[in-house]
Amino acid sequence: MSTLTLAPATSVTDTEPRARFRDLLAAEWIKLWSLRATLWVLLLSPALILVVAARNASYTYDHFDPGPAAHYYQSALNSSFSVIGADVVMLVAGGLGAFVVVGEYASGLIRTSLAAVPDRRALLLAKALVLTAVMTGWGFAVSGASFGVAQAILSGRGIGLSITDPGAFRFVAGAALFAPVCALVGLCLGVLIRHTAASIVSTILVLFFVPAFFTDTYHWSADIAHALPFTAWRRLSVVDLRDQLVSAYPATVASAWITFAVWSLASVAIALLVIQRRDH
């Protein structure tokens, strides 16, 4: 009598290839654009920034007083992207960064994502990279368009600038890269809080309201203020130092770029640590 030999059972996970990181990037790209609010927010919000830039440029055009002491250079730049524009970027980028995380938790999709990808850190890193790429492109498109609109209006007064003028590209780049920094802060708070309204409100508090509590009056207060993203953007936007606010403890351009980098990297690092410990 022959003996029946059974082949060892093979699990599905043994036969399926592990997801490559580029597959995770593709999946996160699809998930980001599958959010119905994403496209509308990213398309409609720049309209407000462009309207504000056109209005500011028109005001500068009408009230510009030419003279040897006129600070036309900084005025022309400020017309392109003002504090209102920065506020819109904080709301849009920070809110979207939080929502790409909490949206998955609210819908329950996060369970499927974490079950399909055992490496939680790789999943979140892919989400962060896609978010950074999208918001960087959006930031440059918005800041570049607002710069172009404002300078086209000011050219009628002979004070319109080119992107190749000294400091102009730094001004545009600072406004553009402010977007991914805010988005990554929102992503981090979304991972920490996991509640839609609370995450978005916390993002606004950190990015918008906290800088108001610190001034350049004291050294310790100035150091904290200079270490915040909003203050760093304001320093990058100052090209004509005659228009910089008088301060006993002024920030530098290098420290502003470092602030952008530290907040971005720290936000991702904290989010990776939290999701790895909390979701296992």
Rank of each mutant, 00 (worst) to 15 (best):
A93K: 01
I84K: 06
S162Y: 00
T132N: 01
A152N: 09
A115W: 02
S247D: 05
R234M: 15
I275M: 08
A116H: 06
R234N: 15
D62E: 09
P118L: 07
A254P: 05
G85M: 04
A212M: 13
V89E: 00
L96H: 06
T15E: 12
L177T: 06
N56F: 02
V191C: 11
Q244D: 15
S58L: 01
G103L: 09
C188N: 02
L48H: 01
D216I: 03
L42A: 05
S267R: 00
A256Y: 07
W138Q: 11
V181P: 02
Y73N: 08
L129H: 01
L109E: 14
V142N: 09
R170C: 01
A152Q: 11
P166T: 12
A133V: 10
F213L: 15
A37M: 08
L6Y: 08
I193C: 12
A93G: 04
I84Q: 12
S80I: 04
A26E: 11
F208P: 00
V172M: 03
R157H: 02
S143T: 15
Y105C: 05
T60G: 00
G160A: 02
F209N: 09
A254D: 15
R55V: 11
I153D: 11
I49W: 01
S202K: 06
L189P: 08
V238T: 15
A93D: 01
A128W: 03
A76C: 04
C182E: 00
G186H: 03
P180M: 04
S2N: 14
L207S: 07
D243P: 04
Q244V: 14
P118F: 03
V89G: 02
G137T: 12
W138E: 09
A86Y: 10
V253C: 00
L32T: 15
P229H: 05
V142G: 03
T215W: 01
F214S: 13
K127A: 07
D165M: 07
